[in-house]
């Protein structure tokens, strides 16, 4: 095991709060939701396991006696297509092929099926998601949700795709992206305010 403090990116003398925060940030960053249906999901899982291990180690050795056991919850969950297809052996077979990466074979099997129901669209969507064809994938999964609105798995997958996008955007905004736009807003507000003033007879910005 690597130095657990290094894994969490904190100093060895970091406070309890700092360690907790670093841990929470790391879990968010490497959460399986961020890597679902993505060829790197195994690597992300490994990384998360390392982080959990490091956190467990630190908590056991530093704050012994206290028990907050949040670690280890996330990586025990099953993050692949559920394979629960109402006992349909054909779809279960395709699903397991998608999960193990036999994408070409799964696609051939899917194309052979003429009855294109919600399950079919969902599996076709996940297959394309794994291939990196996000436009096609989104349309198929959206289709599946529309055909079977009560299915949580379909809906969750669609939500996760949207989530990745907003996580990426929030990352940018949190690191200062879009700051210029605010500056522009300030300027245009000033200009607006000035026009109002001019109507009333005053003028704080003489050039406009």
């Amino acid at each position: 095991m690597e130095n657990p403090y290094k894994t969490l990116g904190v100093k060895e003398n970091a406070s309890e709060e700092e360690i907790k925060k670093a841990y929470r940030d790391m879990v968010k960053k490497y959460h399986p939701d961020q890597y679902r249906n993505n060829p790197l999901s195994k690597l992300a899982e490994e990384r998360l396991a390392e982080i959990n291990e490091a956190y467990d180690y630190i908590t056991k050795n530093r704050f012994s006696g206290r028990s907050w056991n949040t670690g280890g919850q996330t990586n025990s969950r099953n993050w692949s297509t559920s394979g629960d297809f109402g006992g349909d052996p054909e779809f279960s077979n395709i699903s397991s092929n998608i999960n193990s990466g036999n994408l070409d074979y799964a696609e051939t099997l899917l194309n052979r099926i003429s009855n294109r129901n919600a399950k079919w669209y969902y599996l076709m969507g996940v297959l394309n998601l794994k291939r990196g064809r996000y436009d096609v994938a989104y349309s198929h999964i959206e289709n599946a949700v529309n055909m079977d609105p009560g299915n949580d798995e379909y809906r969750n997958t669609l939500n996760r795709m949207n989530m990745s996008n907003s996580t990426y955007r929030n990352n940018a905004y949190n690191s200062g992206y879009g700051g210029d736009a605010n500056l522009c807003n300030t300027c245009s507000c000033l200009c607006c305010a000035d026009s109002c003033c001019e109507c009333m007879g005053g003028d704080c910005i003489p050039c406009c």
Partner: peptide, 20 residues
């Protein structure tokens, strides 16, 4: 709408790959 979604999704994948 479709292109923006697609592009943002590729970027989110690039970003999460970089994190690894």
């Amino acid at each position: 709408g479709r292109v923006e979604f697609n592009l943002t999704h590729t970027l989110s994948q690039i970003s999460s790959s970089m994190e690894l």
